Amino acid sequence: MPPTSMNLKILLPFQVFAETTGVSRIVAETREGSFGLLPQRLDCVAALPPGILTYETQEGEVFVAVDEGVLVKTGADVLVSVRRALAGMGLAQLRAAVEQEFLTLDADEQSVRAVMAKLESGFLRRFASFQHE
């Protein structure tokens, strides 16, 4: 008999953000667009950009702002592992939070990424010159 509901667990790096049973549907955003999950859907994996995750239980719809991460569906279990998540606000406020907090990189993160890019390109140049010798 196919499952009639799903178990959703939203994981952050150091804690469980939410754990919900009896989820009837989930809508997630990917870089290619939104897609829905129903309990009978085949198992899947999806990369998640910063956006809004929506799920529905008997109590109603719940909206969660999530930072980038991954969604994995196996049977009736759906695991969403993200860097940060916010809930408890209206949809408009969550959308604004995604734009302000998740889509804009702070100065420290930008400088770290720039340094890492320089290190990687320097390593590749040295490695390519080493192979040509």
Rank of each mutant, 00 (worst) to 15 (best):
P39A: 06
Q131K: 14
E99M: 10
V78F: 00
A87S: 12
Y55F: 15
V82C: 04
L86E: 03
V62F: 15
Q93F: 03
V98H: 01
M116C: 11
L37F: 07
V72S: 04
L91K: 09
P39N: 09
K9E: 04
L8R: 00
E120W: 09
V78G: 00
K73T: 00
V70A: 05
S24H: 05
K118V: 11
P49D: 15
F130S: 11
Q15I: 02
V72D: 07
A65F: 08
A76H: 01
V72K: 01
C44T: 10
E68Q: 14
F102G: 04
A128D: 12
A107W: 02
V16K: 04
G36K: 08
L12D: 03
G122C: 08
Q15D: 08
G22L: 09
V98W: 01
G90H: 03
L94Y: 12
R31W: 04
F102V: 04
P39L: 05
G69S: 12
A87W: 00
P2N: 02
R84Y: 10
P49Q: 12
E32I: 01
A128H: 13
V72C: 05
V16D: 05
D67A: 14
E32V: 07
L103A: 08
V23F: 00
E109F: 13
L8K: 04
L86R: 05
T54G: 06
Y55H: 12
L42E: 11
A114R: 15
G60R: 10
A87R: 02
V98A: 01
R125H: 11
L105T: 10
G90P: 07
V82N: 02
M116N: 13
G60M: 13
V78C: 01
R113H: 12
A87Y: 00
R41W: 01
P39C: 02
V78E: 00
L119K: 15
Q100C: 02
L105A: 07
L79S: 03
F123I: 15
E61I: 09
F17Y: 05
I10N: 03
G22K: 13
L103C: 10
P13I: 10
F130C: 14
R113A: 12
G122A: 15
V115W: 15
F102C: 06
S111P: 08
T104S: 05
L71G: 00
R113I: 14
L12Q: 04
E133F: 10
L86G: 05
